[in-house]
Structures are given as C-alpha cells and as structure tokens.
C-alpha cells in the first residue's frame, strides 16, 4: 500500500515539474518570438529582391523583375511568419 502511495506522489511531483518547466519556457519566449518573426519576414524579402536584381542585370530588364520578386518575397515572408507562428501555437 505504501509503495503505491509513494509511486503516485512521485508521479504527481514529476508532472508538476514538467508543468513548471513548460511555463518557464513560455515566459522566456515573447522577446525571442518577436525577433524571430521580424527576421523571418525581412530575410525572405531580402533574398527575393536579390534574385530580382540579378535576373534584371542578366536580362537587362530593370526594374521589371525586382518589382515582381519584391512582391513575391513579401508573400514568402508572410508565409514564413505564418508558419513559425503555427509552430509556436503547437507548442
């Protein structure tokens, strides 16, 4: 009987610790989350614009592709942000 009691006590303590850890992680994250979203968005726009500039240089069509890729890059940035926020919600 006593053993069972101890077992349930240990189980309860362990779940308490886990809960506490999870809460700790959640408390830390907002700053990291904000940083993450910002860079995710900017990085996509940056990469896309870069591709646009180089296609324009190559085909001599300035400013056609930079304009197209800027818009596409913004879309990709939003996709990145949506994805990472989905991931955060899942945690």
């Amino acid at each position: 009987m006593e053993l069972k009691e101890i077992k349930s006590k240990i189980k309860k303590m362990k779940s308490d610790i886990n809960e506490k850890n999870e809460n700790d992680q959640k408390r830390v994250s907002p700053l990291g989350v904000a940083m993450k979203m910002g860079t995710e968005f900017v990085a996509a726009v940056f990469v896309a614009s870069f591709i646009g500039i180089y296609i324009d240089k190559w085909l001599e069509t300035t400013p056609l592709f930079i304009l197209i890729f800027f818009v596409v890059g913004s879309a990709a940035g939003i996709l990145n942000v949506v994805r990472s926020s989905k991931m955060i919600n899942k945690d």
């Binding site: 940083m35 993450k36 860079t39 995710e40 900017v42 990085a43 996509a44 940056f46 990469v47 896309a48 591709i51 890729f69 596409v72 890059g73 879309a75 990709a76 940035g77 996709l79 990145n80 994805r83």
Partner: peptide, 25 residues
C-alpha cells in the same frame, strides 16, 4: 507556379534569417 516560387524563396531565406537572428542579437 506562384506558390512554388514563394516556397522556394521561403526555403532560400532560411540561412539568412537563421544567421541574421543570432548575429543581430
């Protein structure tokens, strides 16, 4: 066609966002 281009850009932006985040912080 648009979605594939967007996905590829999103994939290519990974190393940029990964490195800029650490460096900027």
């Amino acid at each position: 066609p648009i979605i594939v281009v967007i996905e590829i850009i999103s994939y290519l932006s990974r190393p940029i966002s990964l490195s800029v985040r650490l460096f900027a912080n």
